[in-house]
Design a protein around this nucleic acid. Structure first.
Lengths: 143, 143
DNA sequence: GTCAGAGTTCATGTGACGTTCAAGTAGCGG
DNA sequence: CCGCTACTTGAACGTCACATGAACTCTGAC
């Protein structure tokens, strides 16, 4: 009754226990300890963990996710509106990812058969116009 | 005249010298050494490196790229046709990546505002039908 | 012959965890 | 209270694809 074990949170969210411990080290989630030093999680942690996993799927780094989570209210348990506010920003991110890959695919179509991989004129080999910009959003195809 | 230095290959392909050394450790590319133990690359290496970088952009691991490269003829310098054969398989891969992200985006649209992240019915939170399958092709969004 | 710049090996760091280990803990039946 | 199984702990090491830095050597222009 005093909280969820790490195994229960893992089962309910689909996250590995090793990931949960790692995220706690990074400060993304928190727990209280039993007298025997085991972690116990609040029920609200499940929603928080679900958010983290969804955000990862969208392509955010844990650092970015932590920044987003830090904008949640400290005092009260976050509401559905709080979570929706954070999720809204992902839309553009996904659109951008799709745009990038589509461009790469189209370039590939125009390149197959020419074998021009090493030439200066090959768009697939020199996609500077597509992927050169750095910063947020480039995580997916520009490591 | 006796070959390209690692810096020249890096400049012409856009790959970092550290990456070129790493790929050589893995056997993806090869070099000959000068009397002073410096690497010298054949001109054909530029095309090979370009292929590696393009393949990475498509989402292949270095292991997969190595497998593809090993199907190239050992005896002669690969032709444009050889490279085109390897590139053709990427098309479906990119299509699949786009399909995945589009599905995720559509789910996000239907989820924003509901704040249902922790509920069993939320498609974004339970995308088992989209991303559950493992194996090749899942590299991008399923780490 | 001098000197900058490019090259060398080797060790260590990164991100986001996964795996493995011995040792400790929880909760159950008997 | 004993024993059993399942679970949890921290620490340490592995993964992938490199980046970075230290300390050194080679090359090529002058």
């Amino acid at each position: 009754m005093s909280g969820l074990t790490i195994g229960q949170v893992a089962e309910r969210t689909g996250a590995a226990t090793s990931a949960l411990r790692y995220w706690e080290d990074l400060g993304l989630i928190s727990s209280v300890r039993t007298t025997g030093n085991q972690r116990r999680y609040e029920r609200a942690t499940i929603r928080r963990v679900s958010f983290i996993r969804a955000a990862q799927r969208v392509g955010l780094s844990l650092e970015e996710i932590g920044a987003a989570l830090s904008t949640l209210p400290d005092a009260r348990t976050p509401t559905a509106t709080d979570w929706a506010r954070l999720s809204r920003a992902w839309r553009g991110r996904l659109d951008e990812q799709i745009r990038r890959i589509e461009k790469l695919r189209d370039q590939l179509d125009s390149c197959i058969g020419c074998g021009c991989l090493s030439l200066r004129t090959c768009a697939l080999n020199n996609p500077s116009d597509v992927l050169a910009e750095h910063g947020p959003g480039a995580v997916l195809l520009e490591p």
